[in-house]
Design a protein around this nucleic acid. Sequence first.
RNA 1: GCUGAAGUGGUGGAAUUGGUAGACACGUUGGACUUAAAAUCCAAUGCCUAUUUUUGGCGUGCGGGUUCAAGUCCCGCCUUCAGUACCA
Length: 941
Amino acid sequence: MSYHFNEIEDKWQKYWAENQTFKAENTTDKPKYYVLDMFPYPSGAGLHVGHPLGYIASDIYARYKRHQGFNVLHPQGYDSFGLPAEQYAIQTGQHPAITTETNIKRYREQLDKIGFSFDWSREVRTSNPEYYKWTQWIFIQLFNSWYNNDSNKAEDITTLIAVFSAEGNSGVNAVCDEDIELFSAEEWNNYTDKEQQKMLLKYRLTFLAETEVNWCPDLGTVLANDEIVNGVSERGGHPVVRKKMTQWSMRISAYAERLLNGIDYNQESLEWTDSIKEIQRNWIGKSQGASVTFNLKDHQASIEVFTTRPDTIFGVSFMTLAPEHELVAKITTPDQKAEVDGYIEATAKRSERDRMADVKTISGVFTGAYAEHPFTKQPVPIWIGDYVLASYGTGAVMAVPCGDQRDYDFAKHFGIDIPNIFEGVDISEEAFADKDKTVIGNSDFLNGMNYKKATKRAIYELEQIGQGKGKTNYRLRDAVFSRQRYWGEPFPVYYKDGMPQMIDDQHLPVRLPEVEKYLPTETGEPPLGNATEWTWCTTKNEVVPNTASGHCMHPLELNTMPGWAGSSWYMFRYMDAQNNGEFASKDALAYWKNVDLYIGGSEHATGHLLYSRFWTKFLFDRGYITVDEPFKKMINQGMILGTSALVYRLSGTNIYVSKGLINDREVEELRIDVSLINASDEVEDLNALKQWQPQFADAEFELEDGKYIVGREVEKMSKRWFNVVNPDDICQQYGADTLRLYEMFLGPLEQFKPWNTAGITGVHSFLKKLWKLYHNGDVFEVSDAEPTKDNLKTLHKTIKKVVEDIENFSFNTSVSTFMICVNELIQQKCNSRAILEPLAILISPYAPHIAEELWSKLGHAESIAYQAFPEFDEKHLVESSKEYPISFNGKMKFLLEMPLDMPKDEMEKTVMAHEKTQQQLQGRTPKKVIIVPGKIVNIVG
RNA sequence: GCUGAAGUGGUGGAAUUGGUAGACACGUUGGACUUAAAAUCCAAUGCCUAUUUUUGGCGUGCGGGUUCAAGUCCCGCCUUCAGUACCA
């Protein structure tokens, strides 16, 4: 009689594992389809019901595609390097590898219970040496590459060396460091080896540079821009300061333009949401304008600025430098020195956060120095101000107060001139920044021109005098790639004579050495400085010899790679995960190409998604892969939030007041475990609460109607809020199929929504009904009778809707469609085999276990997973209504579609009754009018 | 401020993309079956207003507009969420 979901689910999960039902083939005639989830970091807390949401969605799609005859790659793995395991190691001394292993095991158990169709034979873990061997290998390829702007792609460094030794660097159009002096071929050839290496480092796609980095003292490491949120670290919320350090960097800026173009102008535009595309566009931050050089009046130096408005150059009345600008100390006059130093000190003290929070206060100091206007040669006073950011552009601006509100405010505040260079515009109240309405005046050769013309002319004139040129500026910075951590990929790098050297491919992987403790060394080196034995050093290898004492003769790179290293290319490893000779074979890469559907959270928009596009483009340039975008289509699932339960303690007492009785009394809110609460927000058992935590042991309660009603708060699901719902419990109580259906039923995939266990019964009883429809007692029972027209109509209605829903990722409405379908079949008393066969396949992506069970009971030996998806046949829907020809005024003819039971004359009367409609019809000659009783519904012209 | 998304019953959310608004589910109420509970089944459920066999009216954040017809399209606001921020 009853639906024993636990038995059924165990049985089929075992069957799928034993038969490798979901193993993807690398050689087959079938078309490929690659469905990927963002792989999880295996945290110690395990999965809660929010985590599988995206996996369920991707699983539905993967199963659907499999039914459609595609060779589906649907893998899963773990992003297993990361901070929490390391911090746990610092606290407890337990090796992060052990923590990680334990967590992965737990994750796997939890995932297995939900019945995913993952191909686990391709599992990857970023912390596995067999995996990070290739992360290191890619790093080496980046080191051995430079970006050639002429061919617009990355090339091997040897092509650059060839050019250098033949003709020097003057003809080289590369993305490189800014401060490169020109040299001839002869000079190059006379350079010492070290000088040559130093020079090449300025061109390599990964390079060492002393840069100002975001240093997080509490975490003891540097962070990338996208790892900082609101001025504090994304993980842990620790303060971040600016600091100069020598670090590995990734020259992602070389790809800025292609990363931007790839979003839109690819032949196949990325099917991503507009919001993610927009976030990436903003992050790359392309702006076009000009760089302008201002010579200094009393120094042999110049200041370079970037501006988007070269047309307003005659409106310049001062310049502003960032307080950190390198020229500040040099140009400040003795008179102004004290004031300037004071200002610099004050701004340095203000944290990034303060500076961001306080954007309205105008502050700045005059340096006493003057620059010279490039055209008028008039003196231009140089100020410093913290509204100019050192990290954007050149850290200096030419201030045009009449055309930029910030410059305007600054000028007003300090009483600086505000010359007006716009025709017919009043600037007495605010700056005028409308480019489209701009007519330049008061500007010598630019007079009377609009924005476009004036910009072009200004750049031309600047070029003539050698004081400027057109320039495109990007906000995107090169990405710092070093972390002072233990639990990450070691660099395949050692230093000889102070210069970085790559370790030979054949010695990869460079394994993470054992250390006594996971903190920085006493001398301030990263944790790897504690290692005494690097097991990967081979005595045979002359380059990285290992002495008998276990010390390498050359210093090794002690930093590790950041979290995003391993996740920037994992999608390719799945294609050929066991390969020991390559990161994936050419054939596998050529067959699978890229990810057709990627599902994950939108929080990775500026990090992972940008970095993996960068690495993909690089690997493409170097000919290792055949695509230059990793993810064709992406869906960003929303988060499932928890519903915390609040109890209210009267301040200073041990009395807890039910929610409705608080009134105006002062109370403290405390969160209690959601499992103590029933569906109507009452505490189920007050004694259980007393036992839950010691602080409630002798609590007293003020009840309303004998119940304690709690407050509710929707927030992130987290252990600390006691609002975590565990998927294992749900599977145990209702089954995996119910969990899968319910997570989809909860609402649109992309939306954030709170979990509410109470509603799950509706979905669960649907499965019970479905089961009962084909069972008489415990006996499976289907009829071989021909299905009726009604039966077929119900089935095909469902097929149509479900196919549409899956293709639009509206999985929530499909669940409703299934419910309606089963309710109708119950009403029709239909347990026909001819209906169940297609229906089971239809349901199987959503509720695969019950579908397999019913399928096998129908007498099929093979898994339902490879059955063709049922096809929709319109004729079953059309036959339920009829079209009647009608004529008006003896002239016009059109069709009426209406319910079968409506008599023709009544229908005609209905149409006639609508006078306005008749008028409408006379003008248009519609072909078809769809009618429902009493009302015209649709005129199809 | 800018960018993006969204505002529909007590709740989650549907609405074939301009065609009977509120599907489906939760919750609530009533009923059936039970010694009882659970489970299951049946009925009602947007709001207001009538009524004894038959009601009218109002309703998709607010104000306008287009249309025979607007949750859906257009214009102007308001609110919420997310991203981003002195980007020159």
